[in-house]
Write a protein that binds this DNA or RNA. Structure first.
Lengths: 315, 315
DNA sequence: CTGAAAGCGCTTACAG
DNA sequence: CTGAAAGCGCTTACAG
């Protein structure tokens, strides 16, 4: 067998040029010898590593865990691999690090979740290999989530149940996604004639104890209905209420975002905006695979995020 | 500047051979040109990719999300990157896939969580680049968790509170880690004179609805104290109990494994065996980094896993 | 420090 | 189909 024939078969480009029986023979021998092509050499020669970066706030957050898991499944079906990049604690440096990994050829492309590019971001040079999730970047491929509509529905539901005031429990991270969710809620409150109560002190990280303490301060302030940036925050508020004997939903209504498993594990179960991780991840991998193939497909996908009404709201 | 000098500086091997001022100048120019070395070429030449595989059951499980997050932090501080491999649904193929990634040079080494090698596993040829977590592999580097002692403490605690019978809610996955946890509980029950009640039907996946349904069957069977393979299962039992008005811990005592965030989000909070993900991940990355460097260090690390008593047990 | 060179293991035209 | 060849961008002895 010639080196050329083997290379053609192993890289799956033998169609029409190598007979089926020869190709099969090559594959058999390769398998029996335990041979698999050196990926570094292939990457060097072809200029593409087949590795996708997935930029997330924090892989330990269950939603991003789901994204990772689903994106890995979607990538594997295209012979692509996944590499994770966390932004938590690296707000100032992740763009440069990702740009380095792109320019060094380590990554062929990347999916950026919940973050916006800085004005002079080194990533702007790589626009054609990037996909943005939830926070669309003008002119770049994006997976848009319809959370504004879901937030509107949530506020409408609270208003219909008699709430005249809604408080906001914010996530204490600089990610653009949280600024966007808050803005959506401000707009929804305005539309439905509800007063939105926000406070710089009502911001918490996802650490359970921290979030519970902040939630406790909100209860001290007498809030009766709270929209949260994230389920983890909503569940911490749920916990703080249980700790103080505040009845949910009679005395306190809670709405989260995410629909994590934990949302159904508490009692009463959490009303929340569902973020369908598998669907989002599949759309993002689709888009980045198209980008790598040089396709000029539509660059924006929209994923529905339904409001799921459960026991932490009335009506 | 010569190519050699630049290469020496960029790969951090200039110590003593290149003057500090020249090295600094090279770094400045590289930065201003936006140059970073092609990693595929470096991997091809040096034979190592700097990529670590992390084998987990399912990245969407919060515990593995924490492992991923912590391992990524630990790896980054050593200029190593992380790539995840999921075994859920690939019980028959993950070993071959990992072996392929090792032999193709894609991965320099790997951390295997909660799995045991098949007798004729292709991974046995790569023993010197592998680290096993929780399920130690004889003769290979391992991070051992002291869960047997914690399970013993849990059963002792239940026995002291008057339980004469303990039921077991098992995880419905073929991973070796769950077989091990069950065996630990059998041994503990025996030691403390408690009857262990197990049933082939008392097995569930981590899907909330499935697990709740199985937990409901256990309640139908009149169980009063349950040790679970995992917090997610324990929390589903907690949910099933709330749904039926079964009082916890008065009528039902529950013990989990993991100490996920969700364990503190429910009321009463979950008694569980804490698995310190950050510590486990750091130890595993340590071990694999040593392996890649060819060091002959002690090959087994033990991590303590304390029993955390909370509201789902009495006494 | 420099400069010229080899070689890692592929992929990909190219002539037969 | 084969065979000989170039070249991807590095790292690493080697002689100066």
């Amino acid at each position: 067998m010639s080196q050329s024939a083997v290379s053609l078969v192993m890289s799956g480009k033998s169609g029409g040029r190598i007979s089926a029986s020869t190709a099969e023979h090559i594959r058999e021998v390769a398998h029996s010898l335990g041979y698999s092509p050196n990926l570094a050499a292939r990457a060097l020669r072809t200029g593409s590593s087949g590795l996708l970066g997935l930029v997330v706030l924090d892989a330990s957050h269950p939603f991003y865990g789901q994204m990772l898991s689903a994106a890995d499944d979607a990538a594997a079906s295209r012979d692509l691999s996944l590499s994770m990049i966390q932004t938590r604690g690296h707000a100032a440096t992740w763009e440069q690090r990702l740009a380095d990994q792109l320019s060094s050829g380590h990554l062929a492309g990347a999916i950026v979740c919940g973050e916006r590019l800085a004005d002079a971001s080194p990533l702007r040079a790589w626009a054609d290999r990037l996909v943005f999730v939830e926070v669309p970047e003008p002119g770049m491929r994006s997976v848009v989530l319809a959370t504004a509509a879901a937030t509107d529905a949530a506020v409408a539901h609270l208003a219909a149940a008699g709430c005249t005031e809604v408080a906001y429990l914010a996530a204490d991270y600089p990610s653009a996604v949280f600024a966007g969710r808050f803005a959506d809620c401000v707009a929804a409150a305005d539309r439905h004639g509800v007063a939105l109560r926000a406070d710089p002190a009502w911001r918490a990280t996802f650490d359970v104890e921290t979030a519970t303490a902040v939630a406790g301060r909100m209860l001290d302030a007498g809030v009766r209905a709270v929209v949260c940036d994230d389920d983890l925050l909503a569940l911490a508020l749920h916990r703080a209420a249980a700790g103080r004997g505040v009845r949910v939903p009679e005395d306190l209504e809670i709405v989260g975002v995410g629909d994590l498993d934990a949302a159904r594990l508490v009692s009463p179960e959490l009303t929340t905006v569902r973020l369908p991780a598998a669907e989002i991840a599949a759309a993002a991998v689709d888009l980045v695979a198209d980008a790598l193939a040089g396709h000029e497909t539509a660059s924006v996908r929209t994923v529905a995020t339904p409001l799921v009404l459960r026991g932490t709201t009335t009506g």
